[in-house]
Design a protein around this nucleic acid. Structure first.
Lengths: 257, 257
DNA sequence: TTAATAGTGTCTATGAGACAGTATCAA
DNA sequence: TTGATACTGTCTCATAGACACTATTAA
């Protein structure tokens, strides 16, 4: 934080009604929320990026970045509602799967000063989404994650945050129903398996996948549907769109005392 | 953004030499870091609590709370170093197992205003730790988690944070080497098993535990030791005190293309 | 010698993985 | 009828769980 910023803050602090003890007058870090919005599109895992404003007084002008921004203490009642607001603004999606990813904060990541961001991670189906252009973020686009991490630059430390989201997703896919949140309902088991394969980057055995997915009991049948294949397939929806299902793990109890 | 905010922004932009955009002049949430420090002591999972100052101008005077406090942008270079600082101040431990737990932020959790806390979760051995008294936190004590969650009140939303830490630990214990970080080295396999049993709240089969722990390959033999039992046992240390080991999970690849 | 704990062997049930086979439907 | 895809059955192997067994050492 430079001198002018400190002076500015000191000046602001004299404004009554400051009702509290002295600690509150210390300089406060900037607080932001960023959202990693992931989907599977064109057989690839893709992430939503927005273009930063073309304004030289802003950090990283014209660079691609994760959607996000400052917490607005007047608009946002909580970090989660702030994340949902930013997600709604960019995608129009109201109830995606949303979980907290982590937070990143230090004195270097934002040229404007000590800043901490609360990162969230969302999974949405890519179809039926109309990306919202205009406003602060003039360009909103899906970008394939793999290509992005290899070659493109992203603003701030958003590459680190994105990598963390991918790691989280990949690891959870092994034992949860998470990928199902990236499909529009109803979907078939072959479609679901395909999403798993895209995220994991490897093929899965059909029989084993079916057995396991059905045994996990997070799917509800919705009737047969035709998805362009020579044969109809059973359609399914999630029994609970709020919470993912965890497949069974190990270390079971022993029976005797 | 309402009209007054726009006016504010316009006005602030005229101030030289503020090198940044007007958004920096918006009210900032309070930023704190809290640490859930866990250990196994007296055959119970226990958490470190500190007593809040006896000062009526402070929130929750004399209540018990997780160690933590405001990020000091002059002392702390990052959120993690802030968490380590608070941990060191209370326990004297320099290199515990430390991972991020999550963040909690809204307009209600702190009576002083919109605040966001970055919560961390640490595992340390309870022996050889001398709790640091004095300073801001006059009383520092281990408290059994189970009793605490049932009966005691804690400051702020620290109960929620603690519960989240316990949930995280319990779930990770099923498939990681995490509990080993709560033992001083060297330790024996029966000692390690006991820690697992305390955290999980159920007994484990000795044979199965040994097979699995050794197969996971995170232990290094340090020679036989006598821990008061009639028979000596092999001592072990962790091969890596920074990173926990994950036991194998499922969804293996299929061989054919 | 005994008691208590450390450590091993073995049987069984379960579930994953591999893969062959059957069912269904459009062209 | 053919071919593509949906779906099922079955064999094998690895591993977890249960539990009985042996090994070691202090008292």
């Amino acid at each position: 934080m430079n001198e002018s910023q400190i002076r500015l803050e000191t000046r602001m602090k004299r404004q009554p009604p400051v009702q509290t003890s002295g600690i509150l007058d210390f300089p406060r870090p900037l607080t932001t929320v960023d959202v990693v919005i992931l989907t599977v599109l064109d057989d690839q895992l893709q992430v939503l990026l927005v273009k930063r404003p073309d304004d030289p007084t802003e950090p990283f002008p014209n660079a691609w970045a994760l959607p996000g921004g400052f917490v607005d203490v007047r608009k946002d009642r909580s970090l989660e509602s702030c994340a949902r607001r930013k997600l709604l603004e960019k995608t129009g999606v109201k109830s995606p799967y949303l979980e907290q990813l982590g937070s990143w904060g230090d004195d270097k990541r934002d040229p404007r000063g000590w800043s901490a961001t609360h990162a969230w991670f969302a999974l949405i189906p890519s179809v039926t989404i109309k990306l919202r252009q205009g406003g602060n973020a003039q360009d909103v686009h899906w970008r394939p994650v793999e290509l992005l991490l290899k070659t493109m630059n992203i603003a701030f430390d958003h590459r680190t945050i994105l990598q963390s989201a991918i790691d989280r997703l990949r690891s959870k896919v092994e034992y949860t129903s998470l990928p199902a949140f990236m499909l529009p309902e109803p979907f078939t088991l072959p479609q679901l398996q395909h999403i798993y394969e895209v995220v994991l980057g490897r093929l899965l055995d059909k029989s084993g996948f079916r057995t396991r997915a059905l045994a996990a009991n997070f799917l509800v049948e919705t009737g047969y549907m035709n998805v362009g294949a020579p044969r109809q397939a059973m359609g399914y929806r999630l029994s609970d769109r709020e919470v993912p299902t965890f497949f069974p793990r190990t270390f079971s109890a022993r029976n005797r005392a």
